[in-house]
Amino acid sequence: MRPIKHLFGIADLDREQIEYLVNLGDSFIDINRRPLKKAPTLRGKTIINLFFENSTRTRTSFELAGKRLSADVINISASTSATKKGETLLDTGQTLAAMQPHVLVIRHSLAGTCEFLADYLPNTALVNAGDGAHEHPTQILTDLLTMKQAWGTPAGKVITIVGDIAHSRVARSHLLAAKKLGYTMRVVAPKTLLPSQIERYGCEVFHDFDAALPGSDAVYMLRVQTERLTDNCAFPSVREYHEAYGLNGKRLRAAGPDCIVMHPGPMNRGVEIATDVADSARSHILDQVEHGVAIRMAVLAALCGGQEEEKKMGGSSRKQLSEEAMQAQGRLI
């Protein structure tokens, strides 16, 4: 298997790497259920969670994952960071990297933030915790673990994803994962919430939710992200959205008795999902949250394993790189 040095997105992972991380996550579920939730795996490692966008569950999930593997974890949110005082992203990244963390977990509203920083921070593993509408790889790995637990394998299954596809990094990452792992994605949304040329991802496109339900193995509801909707592409009203695209008991019955319900959270009850569906036995939403911690443990462990070996085998030296970075700084800023 190709070694995994950073986690930028599903696009950069091959099938073998994805399956490796999901299986590793599977082996970590148990630690989270023990009375003593701690393993010594990442003792002496430092992890910095750098969140430029608000997040409760992803940040908490990464923090718990690091702490349960005995790493030292530090959280920085944009509201308290020097970015507020005018520091550039690159300077923030280099400043934190100079404090020698092993892993930097980054959420940012700009697509490609991690790839950009990776060129300048040679000794730090970077994890994308969501970059704009681009990718959210740990969420998809989490979902794949939930699907593995429910079905054994996602191959051949039909996942119907509903909501604001255009602004959803979760949807995008799933479309990429579906191709690599051989499951079918049905996307359901009003035209205003679909990106143009969505068919090029090889998915089935529906504007009518009811037509997409039969044959679905999972219905994956996306949160209506009001903060990302601009006035000119919004839907008429929340009530109308719920009527046309909300998952209620009737629709779930139409999907068949074995269809499961998924949601990356946080949920808007009464908007994209009805309360009785969210709380039903077919809802795997809280499993997803639990699996999220296990997957993030797997990602951190996979990125930290063998790190020192790799450095010895010829990671670029800091001096060279800081010169390169200085030149780049001059070019970029």
Partner: peptide
């Protein structure tokens, strides 16, 4: 038990060891 992640040599073992679930 799979003790891969309890070993004291995470940095020096193969980058991505095959791990099974401890039960």
């Amino acid at each position: 038990l799979d003790i891969s992640f309890y070993r004291d040599d995470l940095d020096t073992i193969a980058p991505h060891p095959l791990v099974r679930r401890s039960e």
